[in-house]
Amino acid sequence: MLIDLTLCVGCNVCQGACKEENQLPPSEEKYLSLTAYTALSKYNDLYIRRMCQHCDVPTCVSVCPVAALSKADEGPVAYDGEKCIGCRYCLQACPYHVPKYEWSSTKPRIQKCKFCAPRLAKGLPPACAEACPTGATIFGDRDELLLEAARRVSAEPTKYVPRIYGKDDVGGTSMLYLSPVPFEQLGFDSRLGKIPMPMLTMSALSKVPNVLSVGGVMLGGIWWITNRRSEVAAFEASEKKGESPRPED
């Protein structure tokens, strides 16, 4: 989805449509919550719509120990509450602070934007994109949206900052943003970089097989050498003893 902040008028119809689609209580909310999978927050004169970014290489999917989160080829990052053990690593790791936890439940799950996966399966656009009256949110193929975004930026370079947020941030996301002011001023974390976050832990995890194989051989070898050494020492000691006349038992 492409979200052009210059077109957003803050009507909040997207949140209403989202709540209707997901059968959530229809109150207006300013922050993401268990009952708001998308929310509009205001920075000066601009409205920023937040939701799950549905990253191309999602951090949450990589950290989940039981693979309760998964990335579909069509884009959505889906969550399976039946698998979830409640470790909350996804809450800790998500660079956008998206997943929200049912803290008050004794069988808690996480809640977040589902990218209207059931609608996508039927060939329909997500509810928010369909509802948006100004075209601030449009749905489409990611590559085509990128072309469209680049076209808008180059057509009106004074209107936009020359950046498509989400093009390659944390390895690229399904949500793309265009803004008239630098993204840092809108509460976007500028320190995330372009490398997918899961690479950070993979650099450590990829060493596991090495540690096991090299370490195993090394420890076995050390045992062998030190064992041999003490065997030799014991043998030499007994040889020495043998030279002197053996005391009678």
Partner: peptide
């Protein structure tokens, strides 16, 4: 669900390891 990591693996997860 504490036993889930036994049967549901995710080799990319430090938590799983």
């Amino acid at each position: 669900h504490f036993w889930h990591p036994l049967v549901m693996w995710n080799p990319h997860s430090v938590m799983c390891e």
